[in-house]
Each structure stands twice: as C-alpha cells, then as structure tokens.
C-alpha cells in the first residue's frame, strides 16, 4: 500500500504542476497542446545545464538538483515564447501551433542531445544521465497508519511543487493579475475596455505554463527516467491536459484528476508485482492512465465548460 501512495504521488505531482501551467494558459484564452513539448524542452535545458556545470566544476549531479529545476523552468519558458508568438502575434491556429511545437521539441532535443554528447563528451549516446534525486521521510508524521505513507520517501521536488502550486493558486484567484487573466479567457474585449493589454496578459500566461511545464518535465527526468532522453516524451503533457479538462479548468479539481492518474499507475504496477506476472505485463499496465483518460473524458467532457474565449484569435477591432 505504501508504495502505491509514494509512487502515485511522485507521478501525480509533476503532472499537477504541468496541469496548473495549462490552466494558466487556457484560462487566459490560449489553447495549449504544447505542454508535452515544453516539458521535454525544459527538461533538456535543465539536464544540459547541470551536465555542463558538473563537468566543469566537478560537482555531484544530485546536488545540482535545484539548479536543474531553475534552468528547466527557464528553458520551458523560453520555448513557450514560440507558442505565444505564433498564437498571439502571428494569429496562427492554436492547435496547430501546439502540435508544431511538440514535434519541433522532440526533433530539436533528440538532435541536440546526441550532437552534444558526440561533440562535447565524445560519447555516442542520446541520453544525459542524471540519476534519481534523494528521497527523504518526515519522521513523526510517517508513522500515522496508511496516510503516513504520504510523508515517506518524498522527493524534494514534491515539496517544491506543492509550494509553487499553492503560490500559483493564490496568484490566479486572489491577485489583480489573476482576475485579469481569467477575464481574458471569458471576454477579452472587457479586459481591453478596462484598459488592460490582453496580449500581454496572454503572453505571460503562456510563459508561466512554459515554466511550470519545464518544472514538471525536469521532475520526471529526475525520478522515473533518471536521465534526459527522447523517451521523456511519453505523452504525460497530454495527460496533464486531460487532467485540467476533468478539473474543469480549476486548480483543485485538477489535482484530484492527477492523483487518480498517479494512483492508477502505481496501483497497476503493484498488482503486476503481487500477481507475480512476467515483466512484459507491465507494458499493459502502462496503458492504464491513458485508458482512464479516455474513460474520464467520456464521462466528463459534456458537463465541463471550457473558458468561453478559449482558442479564439483576439482581434481588437472585432466587436
């Protein structure tokens, strides 16, 4: 039972932070299918930065974990500018732009990873080895039966995510910026009439989603895969989108959806282990979150309501 909770949380939280990013972007009115590409690109930049630094400064990779996160967020944010420019400045179709960015991200990071490995380190590899970040346990709390597992085997990034998520919630619902951002997704004309620049709000919202996606991607790289490689494009970005759709574009319900995904996945693995099935069966378990996504979408998409102005190209002149 403990492993289900521990592994479930460490999968659900990075998903959650990416979903929050998606909520920022979509509540401001910009459809963001680019999360998948943004998380990969962010993780690539984060991994590249720490690999280079550790090589020069001869430091241990694990101690650079927070640096990696910072770089990943910057990387995701910079790459998301592409999406923002395409959607806001160039008025491109937002779905197309998202897909374009995903494809470009996969291509660019795979190419650059192997090219850098070859040129800088003289190794033919498509990976940046990172290792798994150290876990810790909160002594007293972890002894509570069942729920105690929440406080066992915590990755440091889980704490980072919880802090950032709380902050993101506060900004979105309590501050002036959040009020304006959510108004942009419902009726951008009202924001414009109030003397606030719609495109600036949307631009920053997309950049926030880029940064948070980068964070999520880096967390996956430091936990599940223990490296950066093109295998980071597992479709988790799309899972985050699915989560925010069930969450009705709200932060707390999206957390619920992410937890369901997380526990479905860790629970599935546990079942394979308990039933002593051959390891090939874990491939079948891998499909659980995806199947669950489809099933949940079937039940929830009709009742959920997307932001009114989502995906519409905003043209000031149009009334």
């Amino acid at each position: 039972m403990d492993t289900i909770i521990i592994d479930g949380l460490s999968f659900a939280l990075p998903l959650f932070i990416m979903a929050i990013g998606g909520i920022y972007s979509e509540r401001s009115g910009i459809t963001n299918l680019a999360i998948e590409g943004l998380q990969g690109f962010g993780a690539f930049i984060g991994a590249l930065a720490v690999i280079l630094i550790s090589n020069f400064a001869k430091t241990d990779l694990e101690s650079l974990f927070y640096l990696a996160i910072a770089f990943a967020m910057i990387g995701g944010m910079v790459f998301s500018i592409l999406h923002a420019v395409l959607c806001i400045k160039f008025k491109a179709n937002q779905v197309i732009s998202g897909v374009v960015i995903n494809i470009l991200s996969v291509a660019l990071t795979s190419f650059l990873t192997s090219q850098i490995n070859k040129n800088a380190f003289g190794a033919a590899s498509d990976k940046f080895q990172l290792g798994v970040s150290k876990r810790f346990t909160i002594g007293g709390l972890s002894r509570i039966p069942v729920i105690g597992a929440v406080f066992k085997g915590i990755y440091p990034f889980e704490i980072v995510i919880i802090i950032i998520a709380f902050f993101a919630w506060y900004v979105l619902y309590k501050t002036r910026y959040g009020l304006r951002l959510r108004a942009c997704g419902d009726n951008p004309h009202s924001v414009d009439a109030a003397g606030v620049e719609v495109s600036r709000i949307r631009f920053t919202a997309v950049m926030v989603s880029g940064a948070l996606s980068g964070l999520g991607g880096m967390c996956f790289a430091y936990s599940i895969s223990a490296n950066f490689s093109p295998n980071i494009y597992m479709g988790y970005g799309y899972l985050a989108i699915a989560a925010l759709i069930f969450g009705n574009w709200k932060i707390l319900p999206a957390l619920g959806a992410c937890l369901i995904f997380g526990f479905a996945k860790s629970g599935g693995y546990r079942i394979v282990q308990l039933m002593k099935l051959p390891s090939a069966y874990s491939d079948l378990i891998m499909i659980l979150p995806y199947v669950l996504t489809l099933l949940l979408l079937i039940f929830f998409s009709k009742t959920n309501r997307a932001p009114r102005a989502l995906g519409e190209i905003y043209d000031k002149g149009k009334r």
């Binding site: 479709g235 699915a242 891998m286 489809l294 998409s301």
Partner: peptide, 22 residues
C-alpha cells in the same frame, strides 16, 4: 462525447504502442 480528437488520438497512440508492444 465532444472529446477533443487531439487528446483522444494521442491516448490511442499510447495505448496502441503498449498493447501491441506487449
């Protein structure tokens, strides 16, 4: 069900990949 086809096709891609892989 008004499911965005981008999301559903991506999910099916992943499902197909693992099921047939298995």
């Amino acid at each position: 069900f008004n499911i965005n086809e981008v999301v559903s096709t991506i999910m099916l891609n992943n499902i197909a990949q693992y099921v047939f892989g298995f």
